[in-house]
């Protein structure tokens, strides 16, 4: 276990989250994929804080957790509003911005 393996794990988790974001259509699962990506970034930051002897990494992790909680609250409110207004949460069937 060293810095490279932590970074490698973070990269793989981020790729999985990004791939899921483009592959899936359900809005709730899209928010879950965002959580996976933020979690991967948290892992890399904590790894740097561990192996480069700094406290900034863990402070940044706390800030990212706060932003993730706020993002989840607003995102889920948007999903509930979408469901109420349009009757679906499938992003492939929502064409607001299509010209």
């Amino acid at each position: 276990m060293n810095l490279e393996s932590v970074i490698f794990t973070g990269i793989v988790l981020f790729i999985i989250g990004a791939a899921g974001f483009f592959l899936r259509g359900n809005a709730v699962v899209l928010l879950l994929c965002i959580e996976i990506m933020l979690n991967a970034v948290n892992l890399v930051l904590a790894g740097f804080a561990r192996y480069l002897y700094g406290t900034e990494g863990q402070v940044f992790v706390l800030m990212i957790m706060t932003v993730a909680a706020a993002e989840a609250a607003v995102g889920l409110a948007i999903v509930v509003a979408l469901r109420r207004l349009l009757g679906t949460t499938d992003m492939n069937r929502i064409h607001f911005l299509k010209g």
Partner: peptide, 9 residues
């Protein structure tokens, strides 16, 4: 972690 992240999507 990787396997369960794959299971999520």
């Amino acid at each position: 972690a990787v396997l369960s992240a794959l299971a999520v999507i």
